[in-house]
Structures are given as structure tokens and as C-alpha cells.
Amino acid sequence: MSAIARTAGAKGSAGFQYGLKLWALRALLVAIIAGAWSYAAGPGGVADILLPSIPQVAAELGSLVKDPVIWRAAGLTLGEMAIAFVLGASLGIVVGLWAGRRNLRARVTDPLLAWGYIVPSVVFYPLFLLWFGLGSSSKVLYAAVGAFFPIAFNTIRGLKSVDPKFVRLGKAFGASKRQLDVSIKLGAAMPMVLSGVRIGVALTTIAVILGEMLAASAGLGFELAKSFNVLQTARGFAVMVILMVLVGLVQLVANRALSHFRH
């Protein structure tokens, strides 16, 4: 979005025309998908219970957004995501900074963190269900684990891979050990840390929705799974749309927040 706006601004009318073309083509793509959907769900097509028509989904969506149950579910899901992310990210950054400051700590913790990062965190979920039950805490902790690993891992990697010429520069200009850590090493590691945070945001949203779908008594993920389980397919589609919008908003807010940092 912003890239297009910038191109348009910089290049004047040529850029504007390009932007227009881009959006026209995007609209066309959406229209094609909608057309294919309408055709498939139309007369002689797939049964409603497998693929409801667009008007049916729209009608369901219209009644869902008036339903306080859905708003409570959305609030719960969003709250779980926020708490899980804040928990996982702060712990990830603290652990990453602590371990990344010393070579020994980094080398001891790095393989473990890499492992935790590689393993899909859903394997830990049954454990959290056992310990904390079906409520929100199991989702929050499972999603926090999902956010923690990429952030901790990337923070350590970033601190370990600082270009030695920047460290040399810091020393030459009189940086104390602390200033070297904060102003030079952390600055140099920032792009890695931020990419860890981006991955953390994405994994948090996936984990919360998945957690609610697998075992819960509330939340949008729960509503989604329930709708399909009782074959209320149109309602399921409507919840899907709401979830897509919700995740889109979360990403938008995250990107806005992250763009305040350089890189």
C-alpha cells in the first residue's frame, strides 16, 4: 500500500496511472474468484451444505455482526492474542538479550531455542490443556510459546551476527560495555529482532485460533469449528470472514507499530 502511494507521489501521473491499473487488476482478480464461487454454488452446482452462496454468507454475516455472542467471542480471541503476544514477546526479548550478551550463554541456549522454534508449538498444547483446562489460559500460554521462540531465537542470532566493524567502531569511539550492548549491538541486531517479532505476531494469531478450534468453550475459533461441526456452513463461512478481518487488523496494527523502528 504505502509503496504504491510513494511511487505515485514520486512519479506523478505515470505513477498514478500505474496505481489505478494495479487496483483495477486486483478488483478483477477478486471478481473472478467471486464469479467462480457463484458459479460453483449456483443452480446445478455444489450443495449449500458444502458451499453456500455469497448472498447466504452475506446474510449470515449480517445477522452475526448483530449477535453479541460473536462480539464477545471476537473480544475474547483478540484479548487472548494480545496477552499471549505481550507475554511471549517480552519474555523472548528478555531471554534473547540476556543470552545474546555473552557468548557462552548464547552457545548454550541457541540449540534449545532453535529446536523450540522448529517444533510446531501445537505439540505443547495438550500439556497446557491438561494443566490449565479448556479456558483462555491454555490458549494464551500455548500462543505465548509460539511467539517466544522466534523472538528469542532471532534476538540471539542478531546479537551474535553483529558486523565486527561496528563493534570496532564503538570501541574506538569510547563506548562502555553497556553502551556497546545497547547502542551498537542491539542497533545492529534490530532488523533480526523485528523480523522475529513479525513472525511472533503471525504465530500468535495462528496459535490462538487453532487452540480455540481444537478445544475451547468460547472464542471465534470455537465458533468456527462449532459451525462446521453442526453443518451450519454459511455461518462457518461468515465466522471465517470475521476472523480474516480480525487477523488483517492485527497485522495492520503490528506493522504500524513496527514501522516506528528503523528497518
Partner: peptide
Amino acid sequence: AAFVFQDYSLLPWK
């Protein structure tokens, strides 16, 4: 003693 390094070494994030 202050340095001007061979590769300048300006910090790209500042």
C-alpha cells in the same frame, strides 16, 4: 586518538 576507518563504518540505523 580518533579514527576515520577504511570503510567509514557509519551505523546504517542512525
